[in-house]
Write a protein that binds this DNA or RNA. Structure first.
Lengths: 245, 245
DNA sequence: ACCTGAGTTCCATTTAATGGAACGACTCGG
DNA sequence: CCGAGTCGTTCCATTAAATGGAACTCAGGT
């Protein structure tokens, strides 16, 4: 199924900083003969996996792809439950919230809730972040054992640091980052899992550093923790530890 | 590229009321030999186009698919501009807002902004709606000429009715629906296009019928109209007609 | 133990993908 | 107006992969 893998490789090119692709982009990025690239993009176009932008030669993901993220959300009871919790916290506090999942060493948001405050962190759903460099990622990595984390990050340089951070996350029951990925932006994250499906998601609130003091932060942690605890209980997530604030 | 088309057919199965698929679901829905279905799902799994839910045999879209809708959004200046407008209107009025695109006779949301009011319409991003049965769909269909609409809906029964509705939409400059798709839910929609790329999007606000009178509705229309007009001017959408309230 | 339904694997056959090269379309600079 | 450069598509013989019937495995149910 070489075509399928090539098609998947093409779709992977759209990650983060590449909103569109041409035949020669694909040739450059994937190193395939341009005859193949041309036919592959054509076939993907005809299958609605891609579409051209206007009448140019630039391609973006096709309409077929638009609803799949939603199908993913619908397939998961856990994501639905987590979304309710974060949506409520987001409207209560006015800050932007996410639900994220981990994929190897990366995390990606599957749902987002825009904050309502005049100064709020803009949602970056669909952007993959390095798991070890974000609160939401660390809240998910903390669910793994030290061995599993070691296996993931072996030879990575950050391992010692990360191991220490994760043990703190495990002890606290939540992950916290202050101006880590983005200057002026703090984040809190709590993870919860569904043992029946082996899924784990992170409930996350991001907010402007200047707007929230420790007391305000702890209120948000408490709100997320309360919702997460109920989910953990209902689904039987025995690994969940209630945050200590 | 028969594999690609089969893979696309599998992905199409996830639309609306099908959150997961098994091998035999695929056999039933697509009528392919089960040997093929089994190998196809396996290949799609290995390409990250699908993933299994837990260790069951049920499949959902894979992680690879999660970011593609975001790449679609990023590829389009028009969607970005429209999102700003709807996000602002959504926070101002507290109602849920969407950006949608048309795909033949269907519309699908590409971005959503949850309302903040206690009573608000829940977002249904990723669900395809019949274009002729929704305000957002009609606001997009209204951009087509009568001939194009006729060609789309020929032999469809609704054509006469629809043509009349669309001429009203064209005259008013906005589409309106009251308790059409969902009891108790009203919607307003205004479309705007980017002539350089031939894209058209609909800016839409949905709200509980009981909460908003005509005056409130007209304020929201005015807010969307103002934003849409600016977009139309900046991008050169000469077909845009400013709503008359 | 025996069935039934779902999923996978095997194998010969058919069908489609591959990539080098030739061809067409467009742009830029002279 | 021409030629060089870039980009995309098409052609064709070769090679590799998809196909589907049948046999096989692995549950859960009786």
């Amino acid at each position: 199924m070489s075509v399928l893998n090539n098609a998947a490789d093409v779709l992977r090119c759209f990650g983060n900083d590449c909103p569109d692709l041409t035949v020669s982009d694909v040739v450059r990025l994937l190193g395939m003969p341009k005859a193949n690239a041309s036919r592959l993009l054509k076939a993907m176009r005809e299958a609605n996996m891609l579409e051209t932008i206007g009448d140019s030669h630039r391609h973006r993901p096709g309409r077929l792809m638009l609803d799949l993220a939603a199908a993913y959300r619908r397939s998961s009871l856990l994501i639905g439950r987590a979304s309710e919790v974060v949506a409520e916290a987001s409207t209560t506090f006015g800050h932007t919230g996410y639900i994220s999942v981990r994929d190897g060493k990366e995390v990606t948001a599957v749902a987002d809730f825009q904050g309502t405050n005049a100064l709020r962190v803009v949602s970056n759903i669909g952007r993959r972040l390095p798991a070890h460099l974000s609160a939401t990622g660390r809240s998910l990595l903390a669910r793994l054992g030290d061995e599993a984390v070691h296996a993931l990050y072996t030879g990575h340089g950050v391992l010692a640091d990360l191991t220490e951070q994760l043990s703190k996350v495990r002890h606290q029951g939540f992950a916290y980052s202050s101006q880590e990925a983005t200057p002026g932006v703090d984040a809190i994250a709590i993870s919860v899992a569904d043992p029946r499906t082996d899924e784990a998601v992170s409930l996350c609130i991001v907010y402007p550093h200047a707007l929230v003091d420790i007391k305000g932060r702890d209120e948000m942690i408490a709100a997320l923790a309360k919702g997460a605890a109920r989910i953990a209980e209902d689904l039987g997530d025995s690994a969940f530890v209630a945050p200590r604030i």
